[in-house]
Simulated assay, not measured.
Amino acid sequence: MAYALLRPFLFSLDPERAHEITLSILDKAHKARSLGLLYDQPVLPVECMGLQFSNPVGLAAGLDKNGDYIDALAELGFGFIEVGTVTPKPQHGNEKPRMFRIKQANAIINRMGFNNLGVDHLIHNIQNCQYQGNIGINIGKNAVTPVENAADDYVYCLERVYPHASYITINISSPNTKNLRDLQSGTALTQLLDTIVNKHQQLATSYGFYVPLVLKVAPDLEEAQVDFIAQQLLDFEIDGLIATNTTLSRIGVEDLPYGNETGGLSGRPIIHSSTQILAQFAERLGDQVALIGVGGIDKADGAVRKIKAGATLVQLYSGLVYSGPSLVRHCVDAIGDYYQLQEEL
C-alpha cells in the first residue's frame, strides 16, 4: 500500500534520483520500524552451495552497490542479499543520465558503469551491519584497468572480501564496462578462472573456512559459448552460476521511448532469454553447479519459471521498481506452492 502511494511520485523523478530517494525512505522506515512499515520474513528454507537460506528469493547485485542499506533491505523479507558490484578503487561510473525507465514494458536500461565507493567502503558497511543472513559480494574490475590485467582487480577484491562474504560473485557480464564481456570467452576466461581459483584455494586454507565462488554471465550467449562456460565451471569446480545479467538486445522495447538508449536492458522483456540461458546451463551442469536465476521477474510466476528451469535460488531487482517490495513475499509463496505441488505428484 505504501509503495503504491509513493510510486507516482517516484516515477515523476529521474530514475537514478528516485532510486536514491527510495533507499533513503526505506532506511528511515527501518530505523522507525515500530511504525509497522516493513515486512515479515517469509520462511521457505533451502540449502544451496552448502549455505542455509531462510527463503530462496534474494536481492540481485546493483541495487545496493556499496552495502549502505543492507539492514533496511533485509526488512523486505529477502532470503539473501547480494551487494556490489564493487571494484578495488572508487569510481564515478558513466556520465549521467545513465538509467532509463521503459514503463510500457516494465523495463529499465542502465549504463551505470560500476559506480561505487570502492571495496574498503563496502567492507566497512558489512562489518557494521546487523543482518545475520547470507550476504553475497559481487566483484568487478575498475574501468581504467586494461582487460588483460583484469585478474589483478578480481584477486585484489577477492582477498579483501573473502572473510566478510557468504559467497563471492565474479561479474564478467556487465555490458557497461568496456571489453568486460570479452572475459566470458576462450583463453581469457580460462586464465581468469585459473588465477582466481588458485587465490581462492589459498584463502580457504589460510582462513580455515570455505566461501563459495559464483560466476555471473550474460543472456547474450550463443550455445557454443554456453557449452564452453559450462565446461569451465566444471573444470574449475566453481560453486554457482548466476544467469543472467542485463542484455544488449532490444527485443520488446525497440519502438518505445528510451528503448534505443545504450546500456543493459533488464525487466520483463528479458524473462524469456534469461530463463532460456538458465535452462541451457541446467541441462549441461545438472546438480554439479548451483544455479541462481535472475532477469525479468516482476510477477510471482516469473520466479517459478526460474525454479522450473533449474534454479535453486532467484534474485530480484527491476521487478521491485515496478511491482514494489510485496513482490518478495509473492515470489516466496509461489515457489512454496510449486514445491508442495511437486511433492504431491
Rank of each mutant, 00 (worst) to 15 (best):
G62R: 04
D27I: 02
A18S: 10
L59G: 07
G50S: 00
P88D: 08
L76G: 06
P97L: 13
A72D: 09
P88F: 12
A29T: 06
G36P: 09
D64V: 01
V43N: 04
G50A: 00
N55Q: 07
G77M: 07
K31Y: 12
L59I: 06
I21L: 15
P45Y: 15
A32T: 15
Y39W: 07
G58C: 09
V86G: 05
V46N: 09
R33T: 04
A18I: 07
N55I: 11
E47Q: 14
S34I: 05
D68E: 07
T22C: 06
T22A: 15
N66S: 04
V83C: 12
G62I: 06
G93I: 12
D64K: 02
Q91Y: 08
L76M: 08
A72P: 15
P42L: 13
S24E: 14
D71A: 08
P90A: 06
V57N: 02
G36N: 02
Q41H: 05
G79Q: 11
G50H: 00
P45E: 14
L23I: 07
D68H: 02
E47V: 09
A61M: 08
Q52P: 00
A29R: 08
A29F: 13
L51R: 06
F80C: 08
L35S: 04
P56Q: 00
Q41Y: 08
I21N: 11
P56N: 00
D40M: 03
I21A: 12
P90C: 12
V57P: 04
K28V: 14
S24K: 14
R33E: 14
G77N: 06
L37I: 01
N55D: 07
R33I: 02
I81D: 05
T85P: 14
A18N: 03
L63S: 00
G58D: 08
I81Y: 05
D71M: 05
L51T: 09
F53A: 02
C48G: 01
G93V: 12
G77Y: 06
P56Y: 00
Y39T: 09
P97S: 13
P56A: 00
Y39M: 02
V57A: 05
C48A: 15
L23F: 04
F78I: 09
